[in-house]
Amino acid sequence: MTLIADSLRLRSETLCMAFIYTNKYHHFHASSALPSPADPLDPHTLALASLSLATKSTESPRRLREFLLPAYALLQPTAAPLTFPSTLYDALRATLVTAELILLRVLRFDIRLPQPLDYVPRFLSKALALPGTEHLEGLAEDEREEVSVVEASETALGREVRAVVLMAVRDYRLVNLFTARTVAAACFFVAAERMGVVLVGVDETGREEWVKRLTSGRVEFEDFEDAVEEVGKVLGQPREE
């Protein structure tokens, strides 16, 4: 899914949402009351349906053939390229449309779900607002360009946080057991640790207060700690106490 998304030059927000849809779909089937619920979507079809639906919810629309042609080439590397129009293309297109409808029903047609990347800009603004740097936020666009002032998300820390978030949303537990805000705060903390960035106010005694300031008191500290541990597992680097 990531390769298709990058090939189509989709934003990180779109890929993030697609992973959330996928995990919500798996959660729906895992929690079904039926004894052995049938899963009508194979992993590849689910990935394409999730990505296609995510382009709509994040206002990055792409045509279905833009998904089907490269996906077919990846899955059938020795076959002749999928052509448009063709009987095979029409069949695959119908399958993808049906898959999107199934996914929509699973999501109860609520496709504008909160995602961790929604919270990253404001977290970065808070963390990077050190004394003596306040004036940079108020610069006009032409002034920012003149002296090469980048957006907070394009700083080294910002890029690392977004990369960690994109890894975290692949995880079933992080998507389904924690709020998007909690996951964002955990990813922010883990990304800073990975980069060796010293966050003001973060130490063994002040960490809870730091979480409260970062999230405006909207994330329970225990949930944050659990999410940090889960993110560490996803990255393959268990947290060291």
Rank of each mutant, 00 (worst) to 15 (best):
V97M: 09
T87I: 13
T45A: 10
S50W: 02
S50G: 12
L64F: 02
E66C: 06
A80H: 12
A49C: 05
L68M: 07
S57L: 06
L69W: 00
L103R: 08
V106H: 06
A79N: 08
T78V: 07
T83V: 12
L101A: 15
L107H: 06
L74M: 15
V97P: 02
G132R: 00
H44T: 14
P70V: 07
P81I: 07
Q115H: 06
G138P: 03
S60Q: 09
L107N: 10
F123C: 13
R108P: 03
A73E: 13
A73P: 03
R62C: 14
E66M: 09
P70S: 11
S50R: 02
T133G: 00
A127V: 09
K56V: 10
S57V: 08
D110I: 13
L113V: 15
S86C: 08
D118A: 08
R112Y: 10
A73F: 00
T98K: 13
A49R: 01
P85C: 12
S50H: 01
L101H: 11
P81Q: 12
L104S: 15
E134W: 00
A71T: 03
L124R: 05
R93L: 14
R105A: 15
S60R: 01
T133Q: 02
D90L: 14
T83C: 13
D90T: 14
R108E: 15
P114R: 10
A54H: 03
A94V: 06
R63D: 12
L128R: 09
A99V: 13
P70M: 06
L88Y: 01
R63Y: 08
L92R: 07
S60Y: 00
T58F: 00
L103V: 14
T95Y: 00
L51Q: 10
R93C: 15
A79F: 01
L104P: 07
R108F: 08
L74Q: 08
K126D: 11
T78C: 01
L128K: 06
L82D: 04
